[in-house]
Every structure is written in C-alpha cells, then in structure tokens.
Amino acid sequence: MHKISNVASQSPVVSLRNVHKSFGPLKVLDGVSFEVDRGEVLVLIGRSGSGKSTALRCIDRFETIDSGEIVVGSHRVSDPKLDLRALRQDVGIVFQSYNLFPHLTIEENITLAPCSVKGISKSQAKEQARQVLAQVGLEDKLHQYPEQLSGGQQQRAAIARSLAMQPKVMLFDEVTSALDPELTGEVLKVIEALAADGMTMVMVTHEMGFARGIANRVVFMHRGKVHETGPAAILTSPATPELAQFVGTGL
C-alpha cells in the first residue's frame, strides 16, 4: 500500500481519520483515512458499493459517522455540536442527478443561496450569477429553466450554483454518470478548469482517463477500506491485484 508523506506545511482542507460507518448490519466504511490539501484534487475510485458516495457524503455531513474523525477547514464535522450550515457554506457538493430546482430559472437557482444564506443583495447576486455561468460557459442560459437545458448544461449549471457560494472545497459524486457520452466532455472540461484555478476537490468518478489526468491523489476503495492510495500513477501501475483488476476491467 502506498503512503503519501504530507510535506505541505499548512493543514489539510479535508481530513478523514479512521472513519467507521455502518448502515444497520452493513459496514460501509471500515476505518477510512485520507487527507486533501489546499488546491489538491483527490479522486475516489472503487467498485459499486465500496463506500465512495458514503465517504463523500460524510464529509458534508449528509451521513453521520459511527467513529473516527472528519475535519473540513475549521469545522470538526464529526463533532455533534457542529454548525452544519457554516460547514455547508464552505463545502460545495454536486450530485449525479443535478438537482436543479425546476421551478426556478438558472439565475434564480444560482442566486437563491447567496441571497438567503449570505444575505448579499439581489443585484450583487445576479452579477455573481453571470460570472459563475460564464465560468461554466452558460452565460446565455441565465433566464432559461432547467428543463430547457441538456443534461450536460444542467450539470454545469449545478456546478455554477455551488460555485456561487464560493466554497473552499468542492465534492463531486459521479457527476457525469447520468450523461450521454457526448455530453460528459463539456462537464469534465469545466471541472478541469476549476482544478487549474486551484479549487480543492474530492471527486468520485468512473472516468479513468479523466482521473489519470486530473488527480493529485487517487484513493482506491475496496470493501469499505482505503485499499490503495497514491498519485495518479497508481492507475497505470497498481500495486495491489484488486486495483490492477479494477483498472484492467476498464471500469
């Protein structure tokens, strides 16, 4: 098993230490530990059911953990006294099924949280909406409704909606899995641009080629454990037979 030496002087943006999580009798996370430094892209891979989504959701406290510790910036996520909404202002999460609010225009989708949560003015929020939409290449969709957009455009709009909260870290859970192959590229390009901009990210993906190109760190999960971790190079030269088999099957 590879081990990454943490040479960065600043503390990691996200850290999981010995996290355990069960759903009833099913042990989903069995002592998971990893860290993400500022500006780093961590890619979570593994077979279906290996606990990737659960690990990601624990970071944003969509699931509570049984034991261990999760820290995001200044937030101790595993602390029962956590200020949940403060955490979620610092963490952006994008799901496989975009989840744009269907009754609101793209602009309203984007300005809703900055206006109601951060209390910024409508005009400021609209200006910001234009900026984040430009970032994902959808300036012209400001006044459209989600159903008027293609899947790829909806997913980019969902990313823009998260970005408008100016998060310190972004979580992506298989954000291209619901898309037709010809639409995945436009979404992955947006994520690449974010990475180049220095956004800290944790992403679950089945796009191995993409992972190889973007990951600073890869975490391969297997049966609720971090089975192998290291730089993107482990995808081409895996140390464990399980990872070798996983990347070999092209999943």
């Binding site: 944003d60 403060a86 799901f95 989840n99 609010f101 949280a113 109601s116 949560v117």
Partner: peptide, 23 residues
C-alpha cells in the same frame, strides 16, 4: 418533491424554513 431537491438545498446551506419555502 424528490429527496435530491432537498439535499441539494441542504448542501447550499439553506435553513429548514428556507428549504420549505423555496424548494
């Protein structure tokens, strides 16, 4: 209202009351 809509709103740090009203 699908669960995902509410999770998306929670992920954006909206309060319970705000989620009920807007989403």
């Amino acid at each position: 209202i699908p669960r995902g809509q509410i999770e998306a709103a929670e992920g954006l740090a909206l309060s319970k009351a705000q989620i009920y009203w807007h989403v």
